[in-house]
C-alpha cells in the first residue's frame, strides 16, 4: 500500500536511531578496556568487576531497590483508588481539585515538587531519611499509576460489575472478584511504571532524602559531576538491562492476559 511511504519509513528509522544510538553507545563503551569512554581500546569486563568492590554504590543500589519496592506498592494501591474515584464518581465535592492534584504532578518541574515536600517534612519536624524519601516517591508516582489505571477503567464494561452487585456481592467483593481481575494488567503496568520512576528519580530524592539514604541516581550523579568513566557506563548498562527485562516480562504478561481475555469473551459469547 502506498500510505506507508518511503518518507514515513525514513522518518521512523531516523527517529528511532536518534532514540537508541546514545544508549547503544553507552552500553558498548561500558565494555571498553580503556578508561576513556570515547576511544575504543578492546573488550573488557573489568569495570563490572570493579563495581562489585564499590561498597558505596552497592549500598545506594540497595536503598534504591527498597524505596522502589515499598513506594511502588503503596503508590499502586493509592493510584488505583484515585483512578476508581475519578472514573466512578463523576461528581463529588472538590472533584476539580482532585483531578488537578492527579494531573499537576505529571508535569510539575521536579525542583518545585522536591523543594515543597522537603519544606513540609521540615515544618512537621520529620527527620529526613529513608522514610521521607519513600513518602515523596509514593506521592509523585501514584499519579502516574492513577492515569494508567484510569485509562483502562474508562473502557471497562460496568454491566458485569452491576450484575455481580445484583447477585448480592458487596462492593468490596465485586471489586476484588470482578473489577480487579479485569484491570489487573493495567494495575501491574502501573506498578512497574511507579517502580522504574522511583529507581530513576534524582531531583526529588536529593531534596527529600537525608544522611544514610543515598540512592543510586544520587550516587551516579555525584560521580558524573567528577567526570565520565566506564564504571558509570557499567552501572547504567546494568540498570538498562534490569529495566529491559522488566518491560519484557510486563509486556509478555499483559499480552498473554489479553489473549486469555479475548478467548474468555469468545467462550462466553459462544454459549
Amino acid at each position: 500500500m502506498q500510505r506507508w511511504s518511503r518518507f514515513n519509513i525514513a522518518s521512523i528509522v531516523l527517529g528511532f536511531a536518534f532514540l537508541y544510538l546514545p544508549i547503544v553507545l553507552l552500553v558498548i563503551f561500558s565494555f571498553n578496556e580503556s578508561k576513556l569512554v570515547t576511544v575504543w581500546a578492546g573488550f573488557s569486563t573489568k569495570w563490572y568487576v570493579q563495581l562489585l568492590h564499590n561498597q558505596a554504590l552497592l549500598d545506594a543500589a540497595w536503598v534504591t531497590v527498597r524505596v522502589g519496592l515499598i513506594s511502588a506498592t503503596v503508590a499502586t494501591v493509592l493510584g488505583t483508588m484515585a483512578a476508581l474515584a475519578m472514573t466512578r464518581y463523576t461528581r463529588f465535592r472538590g472533584r476539580m481539585l482532585f483531578s488537578g492534584m492527579i494531573y499537576a504532578p505529571l508535569v510539575m518541574p521536579e525542583v518545585i515538587t522536591g523543594l515543597s515536600m522537603l519544606l513540609l517534612f521540615v515544618a512537621i519536624g520529620f527527620d529526613r531519611g529513608f522514610w521521607t524519601l519513600t513518602l515523596a516517591h509514593i506521592t509523585f508516582t501514584m499519579c502516574f499509576v492513577a492515569v494508567v489505571v484510569q485509562s483502562r477503567l474508562l473502557s471497562f464494561d460496568r454491566s458485569i460489575e452491576e450484575a455481580a452487585m445484583d447477585l448480592g456481592a458487596t462492593p468490596v467483593a465485586t471489586f476484588l472478584q470482578v473489577t480487579l481481575p479485569v484491570i489487573a494488567p493495567a494495575v501491574f503496568s502501573g506498578w512497574v511504571l511507579a517502580f522504574t520512576l522511583s529507581l530513576d528519580d534524582l531531583v526529588i530524592s536529593s531534596f527529600t532524602s537525608g544522611p544514610g539514604a543515598t540512592t543510586l541516581p544520587m550516587r551516579i550523579y555525584s560521580q558524573v559531576r567528577l567526570g565520565v568513566t566506564p564504571e558509570i557506563n557499567a552501572v547504567c548498562t546494568i540498570l538498562i538491562g534490569i529495566v529491559a527485562i522488566g518491560v519484557l516480562i510486563a509486556s509478555v504478561v499483559s499480552r498473554s492476559r489479553e489473549i486469555q481475555r479475548i478467548k474468555d469473551e469468545q467462550a462466553a459469547f459462544a454459549h
Binding site: 546514545p22 553507552l26 563503551f29 511504571l193 565520565v228 547504567c236 540498570l239 529495566v243
Partner: peptide, 13 residues
C-alpha cells in the same frame, strides 16, 4: 523506562 539521568549522561560522551 530507562533512567533519565542515564540518557542525559550518554550525551556527554
Amino acid at each position: 523506562w530507562t533512567s533519565f539521568l542515564i540518557r542525559v549522561y550518554a550525551w556527554i560522551a
